[in-house]
């Protein structure tokens, strides 16, 4: 018995490593619907959309699966056509720390869903809500605003920067520790 116990314990420890991050691929209707009322005006005080009660953000923000899906969709839905791979083109750069409409995931979600006046189209009907959240989470990762443990580590195309998980952390960038 005495000898079994350490064996059992270490076996349990080893098995604990089998835990994998859940890949939630179906819409999470139990959380917020994502169907917030449309913005009545494009003017938002401080460039920040007042965050609603939608608690989907937390699910998507630091989830490796959703971030990598967002990275794939960024190309599939041709965001790169206007924003390049984050460097900017006809649309603004998304890999810098300048935000026209706020840096929170809720603001970015609103940007993609409702569009913005100076040329950002609305994807309200053409991208399912969960996929908009994935894109928003990835857009934040482009500027180092996602935990490096979850940000995508893979580049399929020529990119202007290393993969997102190797970007410097936006929170500490330029500040001495």
């Amino acid at each position: 018995m005495n000898r079994c116990l350490p064996c059992l314990l270490s076996a349990m420890l080893v098995l604990a490593a089998c835990q994998r991050e859940e890949r939630e691929t179906r819409p999470q209707s139990a959380l917020g619907s994502g169907d917030q009322p449309a913005a009545v005006t494009a003017l938002e005080p401080g460039g920040q959309r007042p965050t609603s009660s939608d608690n989907k953000a937390g699910v998507f923000e630091a989830n490796a699966f959703h971030l990598s899906e967002g990275k794939r969709l960024f190309n599939w839905f041709n965001c790169s056509g206007c924003h390049a791979n984050g460097g900017g083109g006809m649309g603004p750069a998304l890999m810098d720390q300048k935000w026209l409409y706020g840096s929170s995931i809720e603001s970015i979600h609103a940007t993609i869903r409702d569009g913005r006046p100076n040329g950002m189209p609305s994807f309200r009907d053409t991208i399912p809500d969960d996929q908009i959240w994935e894109l928003a989470a990835f857009v934040r990762a482009l500027s180092g605003n996602a935990p490096s443990s979850a940000a995508p580590g893979r580049d399929d195309d020529m990119m202007p920067h290393p993969s997102e998980n190797r970007l410097p952390d936006a929170a500490t960038l330029g500040k001495s520790p």
Partner: peptide, 10 residues
Amino acid sequence: KPGAHMPVVR
């Protein structure tokens, strides 16, 4: 086909 690259569309 869980994980397939076609999302559920409402």
